[in-house]
Design a protein around this nucleic acid. Structure first.
Lengths: 200, 200
DNA sequence: CTATATTTCCTAACAGCGTTAGCAAAGTTA
DNA sequence: TAACTTTGCTAACGCTGTTAGGAAATATAG
């Protein structure tokens, strides 16, 4: 009897319709305007139904945060695979990260809590591990072929991550848009120094 | 007739009691738990009275954001004045910034909207100009005595600001606390490269 | 000193929020 | 057909920021 299967399928459908509706709302009005009641209206159910699929609103946001990191990891992976030279891989990943942030501002803001969450939830995001390893493996390769064998890859990773995130978030804080010339120069300026600092 | 003066004085007193009460609440429960009704209760007035002194809740937050930048500017100024050598001044300001952020997390989170505001309000914060000039003047001095005369001080400023803010915000995102050894090393690692990059 | 005008400040309300309780209807199983 | 389970609703609780309207206190003028 495939009844139970059908039920599971239907339940899954509602669940994904919640996520779909939520995301459309986020895209249209920003994630701060997202409300359970609006989602309910969009999926043509009453609000309490959402709680049969997600524990609370934060759980929905967490889902998007994870999705964001999955997309980011994917972009980084693609960028990296286009080169074999570690420094070039690093550079490519930096640009990929940068473009991801500005092409997916809603995701980025959710991921980094430019509007509130992600303080306790950080540890629940397993995707962060993948992210860290993706970049650190490249850094290890860079150190391996450098004259600076005792460099700490984790330290370099934190430096890299901090810089690129800081650059993005200070930009988003301002006019919100603009991936302009200055910013590209700032990124280049940093990358040059960063990569040189590992080589030597 | 000093009546009008007294009235102004009294009004000013209520205004500052609002700010004082609000800040106590922020310190005790975090700024996300701040509400107009709680402020009203603390100052022993009804909620609508607050609107005689501030246009809305955001205006109160903006007040704190500005106050935060004033404190930060003060710290930077003090740090800078302890040295005459521009690179040392730069270093001192970096540490001052860093310590300010962790000793005044509530302020920092408000200032940089780690919890939401400051997207349109950025342009209303005149204190940002002072901040920018404080650091840029030092960078200009550094460039003046360097072998790299054509370096762009604004570009360097953005690099500096991005890095240090990124470092702080990624840290606050995590465990929230901890000004630990690793972070000091990351900061040192960056500063070394940054200062060297300007000199040469 | 009284009467008018103004300021102060409250209660009540609006419209929204996340979330929970409880019940009615629909669907499933025996 | 009867009993049980699931589904999904309405209504409500306790919050939120903010506004309208009126009562009471205060200040001004005659």
């Amino acid at each position: 009897m495939g009844i139970v299967e059908r039920k599971i399928r239907q339940k899954e459908e509602v669940r994904s319709s919640i996520l779909k509706a939520a995301w459309q709302l986020v895209e249209k009005e920003g994630w701060q305007a997202l409300s359970m009641r609006k989602i309910a209206e969009a999926i043509e159910y009453s609000a309490p139904v959402i709680y049969d699929h997600f524990q609370n609103k934060e759980a929905i946001l967490l889902e998007f945060t994870k999705e964001g990191f999955r997309i980011l990891n994917d972009r980084l992976d693609k960028a990296k695979s286009q080169f074999t030279d570690p420094p070039r891989q690093m550079e490519a990943m930096a640009y990929a990260y940068w473009h991801f942030a500005f092409e997916n501002q809603e995701y980025y803001q959710l991921m980094y809590g430019l509007g509130m969450p992600s303080c306790e939830m950080v540890q629940e995001i397993s995707e962060l591990t993948t992210f860290t390893e993706l970049i650190m493996s490249c850094l290890k390769d860079m150190i391996k072929i450098s004259n600076n064998q005792q460099a700490d890859p984790y330290l370099k990773f934190r430096t890299f991550w901090s810089m690129i995130h800081g650059l993005i978030s200070i930009n988003m804080m301002g006019k919100g848009n603009s991936i302009n010339e200055l910013n590209t120069m700032v990124l280049n300026d940093f990358l040059k120094g960063f990569i040189a600092g590992i080589k030597a």
